[in-house]
Amino acid sequence: MKDFDYAAPTALNEAVSLLAQHNGSAKILAGGTDIIVQLREGLKDADVVIDVKKIPELTQLSYSAESGLSMGASVPCYQLYENPEIVGAYGALTDSARIIGGWQIQSRASVGGNLCNSSPAADSIPSLIANNATAHIVGPNGSREVAVTEFCTAPGKNVLESGELLVKITLPARVSKSASAYLRFIPRNEMDIAVAGVGSWVKLSEDGNTIEDARMGLCAVSATPQFAEEASAFLRGKPATDETFAAAGELAKKIASPIDDMRGTVEYRIHLVGVLTKRTLKIACERASEN
């Protein structure tokens, strides 16, 4: 590992100018649970590491029933699942937050870091997609917004341009009779990377029998996490039954293009998309009819 400098700016503009000044050789540190490992293992290197946890905008977490969730990019996972309102409104996201590493990791690791690390297997991204989240970015040329669905571009790559950083992620307010759930498949019960992961959001009719709207996100089955658009559209107007969930699973499988590796075979991973879609839809529907 090469020596590097450490900076901890306390204002957003300071961070932006530091980034600009180092032009690519600076690395951002939120919880550090990806970047520290990557630097130590020589997968990445840096001249300066910029800790963003002292920037107020990046550490704020606010929720209201009217305006939804605004989550600073470096808010650690535990703050999400320890907040009952957030758990109620964004079940998939808090399902994800609860399984990213163990307690020690969750007290540091952020959803923003998970998104910016842009791993194909990132556990929070399918949930962000299902919950229709938006990424708020600031850079030398001002700020912009990108739908999380469009954020990742390749394994480890995303839309952030040199000098840009993620400030926060926002999720729209919860509508009535809606809920979401996330499941991943791992061979063990912890300390594992998703072999496949699915986040599902549904909005049911008032009587709870019909799916009015749905959004599903997948991970670990293609180069980037994906929005399962066709499967989501299929669900609109369908009865909330096991048959419907299974049919949606079949459609979701169509966009899976996984690789064979030590975590699973192509065939197995595609199969899992069907299983997890079915199972997450069922949980999401149960949650939706409860609240």
Binding site: P187, R188, N189, E190, M191, D192, I193, M262, R263
Partner: peptide
């Protein structure tokens, strides 16, 4: 130890 999966 992430991908060589000993039981936890």
């Amino acid at each position: 130890f992430l991908d060589y999966r000993m039981p936890t």
